[in-house]
Each structure stands twice: as C-alpha cells, then as structure tokens.
C-alpha cells in the first residue's frame, strides 16, 4: 500500500477516535455509550495495526489484536453484564448542558494542540498531529467523568481515558514494550472487575448509582 494513503488512513482513524470521544460526551443512553466505546476500540485497534504497518513494528499487530479482544469484546461484555445485574439498561442519564460540555471539549482540543506543539516538532513520526488528538481524547475522557453522575458511565469515562493514553503511547513512541502493554491490559481488566463489584455494592447500599448520593456520606456541619 502507498505510504501516503496509509498515513491518510491513520489520520482519518485518529479523527474518528476523537469523534467517538465527543459522541460519548453527549450520549445519554447507556447502551449507546457502550457501543460507542466499542467503536472507539475498533478504531484504536485499526490505528495500531496501521501504525505497525507503516513503521514496521510488528509487535504492534499483537497490541492491535489485544486491543480488539479486550476493548471491543471483553470489556463491553463485562459492562453489559453489569448493566443487566444492576437493572439500569433503560436508564437515561441527565447530562449537564450538552452545548457547554462540548464547548469545553473543543477548548480542550485547541489546548492540547497548543500544548503538543514542541513535541510535534521533535517527533519523527509521520503523522505527528495525532499526538494532539490523543491528548485531547484523554482530557475528554476525564471531562466525561466529571460531567456524569452515574457510576457505570464514569467507569466508561475512565476506560475512554485509558484509550486515549494508549493512543498517545502509540502515536508518540510507537507503543510501549509488549510486556508493559500486557501488564496494562491486565490492569484494565482487573480495574473493570473491581469497578463492577464496587458499583454493585454502591447500588445495594444507596439503592442508586448516582454518585451525588455519596455526598450523604459526609458529615454535616
């Protein structure tokens, strides 16, 4: 394949990752969120594979397969199970003002672009500007955690943030060594389990997954 076309495809995929991040920011329905997360995983895996191809780092193919397994199949499955257990499958979440959230998101994109300017100049990678996208994805994940109330959607926000970090690693240094990546993958998996168990407990204790309710834990003065 032509190098130029591959590059173009990588940039495209990066944009799609960003697009899914924004879509997750405004998606109300929890199933919709999970499928968006799946899509993000798919785009991420594809990016990884293409970067591996263009840079001749073949261990990235393994990373891509790992991403596909973990983020497209396993994690969504766990989340779905969690939702069924918690009986919140049809819940519609109130999102704080969509427009202003998105505005902040756009500001974050500009911010990360400004921030990564020195890195981009030094990087040898062909499509340097996607580092900015990666950083923006991380920040948008964090933003999503801030704006959501439901514990499960916050978990998804966390996972989206991790996606961004993974993406940043790939775009900046062609990915971490395979051992580290495996470790991170297992970490994520365990985190998902722990989160799941916690949410179940939160649900049984408070009869709700709204994290605002946890403010009641605080002593009044």
């Amino acid at each position: 394949m032509d190098i130029q076309i591959t590059e173009q495809i990588i940039i495209m995929l990066a944009a799609l990752v960003l697009l899914t991040a924004f879509a997750m920011l405004v998606q109300r329905k929890i199933y919709g969120l999970i499928s968006l997360f799946m899509w993000q995983g798919i785009f991420l895996a594809l990016t990884t594979a293409f970067v591996g191809y263009i840079a001749h780092r073949y261990h990235l193919y393994i990373s891509a397969v790992l991403t596909l397994l973990l983020k497209v199949i396993l994690l969504p499955y766990i989340l779905r199970m969690l939702i069924i257990k918690l009986k919140i499958s049809r819940e519609v979440e109130s999102v704080v003002n969509v427009t202003s959230t998105m505005l902040i998101g756009i500001a974050l994109v500009i911010f990360s672009y400004q921030l990564t300017a020195p890195i981009r100049q030094n990087s040898a990678f062909v499509a340097q500007s996607i580092i900015a996208i990666a950083l923006a994805t991380v920040m948008i994940g964090l933003l999503m955690m801030i704006t959501r109330r439901n514990a499960v959607t916050q978990i998804i926000g966390f996972l989206a943030m991790e996606n961004g970090l993974f993406f940043a690693a790939i775009s900046a240094t062609y990915g971490m060594p395979l051992v580290v990546e495996l470790g991170v993958a297992i970490d994520i998996l365990i985190a998902a389990f722990v989160f799941g168990i916690f949410s179940l407990h939160i649900n049984t204790t408070f009869d709700s997954l709204d994290v605002d309710k946890m403010a009641q834990l605080k002593e009044d003065y």
């Binding site: 130029q4 076309i5 173009q8 495809i9 940039i11 495209m12 944009a15 799609l16 697009l19």
Partner: peptide, 10 residues
C-alpha cells in the same frame, strides 16, 4: 484521497 479527510468526517 480528497474526501478521505478528518475534517470531512466531522
């Protein structure tokens, strides 16, 4: 290549 652009996706 002309239409396969990030800005076009958005």
């Amino acid at each position: 290549l002309a239409t396969l652009r990030p800005s076009f996706v958005f």
